[in-house]
């Protein structure tokens, strides 16, 4: 008899608690945004912040709530945007084209002049506190690699000459390097662009000539002789208009006296 009592009591308790739990699960259920969950599963999960939201989950929530436009994810690009559009039930719009970071400077300690010997903290922003860096050219790369430290995909490295280079294949376009760079020598260019200007200096040509062997002197050869190259000189600095078909860019690069139109690969 005793043994039956034990069974009954435990059984009744189990039933009661089970019902309680079942009720609590319904009553206090956390509403999940399933759309956001699905979108989060599609996003690359790099948490790079390139979209301007705090990580992928932030962007997923904003997409689901309809407060953010589709196609902001630089690492995901068009394929991810298409999948997200499917979940949201909208047309996949023309996504912004893939942009990659490019260091607009090929000067280094051999080719360009220095003002002084810097021996402080290995950080570009630290060097920029002292006369905007040790370069005589105040527009150029400081070579201390603050961008290397912030890059989430290790796309930025130093080559054998000491120049800082971005590998466009690895770059996910999160723009973190452009934000940390004190001289703003890293800017975004379209990934399809075959060439880029490897100079950032707005100094007049005469001054650039004196302090750097590979700086743009604003001679306008690229702009005047090769109008189809897409180059245009503004403020003593040539800039490529990537909307232009750039059919003559290879010739322009050859003709550039300081060879500062370089291949962007």
């Amino acid at each position: 008899m005793d043994i039956l009592n034990a069974f009954l009591i435990i059984g009744a308790l189990g039933l009661l608690l089970g019902l309680g739990l079942a009720y609590a699960a319904k009553k206090f259920a956390v509403k999940k945004d399933e759309k956001a969950e699905d979108i989060l599963a599609i996003l690359p999960g790099a948490n790079c912040g390139g979209c301007g939201f705090p990580g992928c989950s932030g962007y997923a929530a904003a997409l689901s709530a309809g407060t953010a436009p589709n196609g902001l994810c630089p690492p995901g690009g068009a394929p991810v945007a298409a999948k997200v559009a499917k979940i949201l039930g909208i047309e996949a719009e023309e996504t912004a084209e893939r942009m990659v970071a490019f260091v607009h400077c090929r000067g280094n300690h051999e080719l360009s002049q220095l003002d002084y010997k810097y021996d402080g903290i290995e950080d570009c922003n630290a060097a920029a506190l002292l006369f905007k860096g040790d370069n005589t050219c105040k527009y150029g790369c400081l070579h201390l690699g603050s961008c290397i430290k912030v890059c989430p995909t290790d796309a930025i490295s130093r080559d054998e000459k000491g120049n800082i280079m971005v590998n466009p294949a690895l770059c996910i376009g999160c723009k973190k390097c452009t934000l940390v760079c004190p001289t703003k020598v890293i800017r975004m260019i379209p990934a399809r662009g075959s060439h880029a200007i490897a100079c950032n200096s707005n100094d007049p040509g005469g001054k650039v000539r004196k302090i750097c062997q590979v700086g743009c002197i604003g001679c306008k050869i690229c702009e005047n002789k090769f109008p189809e190259s897409g180059c245009k000189v503004v403020n003593f600095l040539s800039e490529i208009d990537y909307a232009n078909p750039m059919t003559q860019i290879v010739q322009a690069a050859k003709a550039c006296p300081t060879k500062c139109i370089v291949e962007a690969k």
């Binding site: 402080g120 903290i121 950080d123 922003n125 630290a126 506190l129």
Partner: peptide, 8 residues
């Protein structure tokens, strides 16, 4: 270079 660090 602690002061440099503080400055930055």
């Amino acid at each position: 270079p602690l002061v440099h660090a503080m400055k930055i």
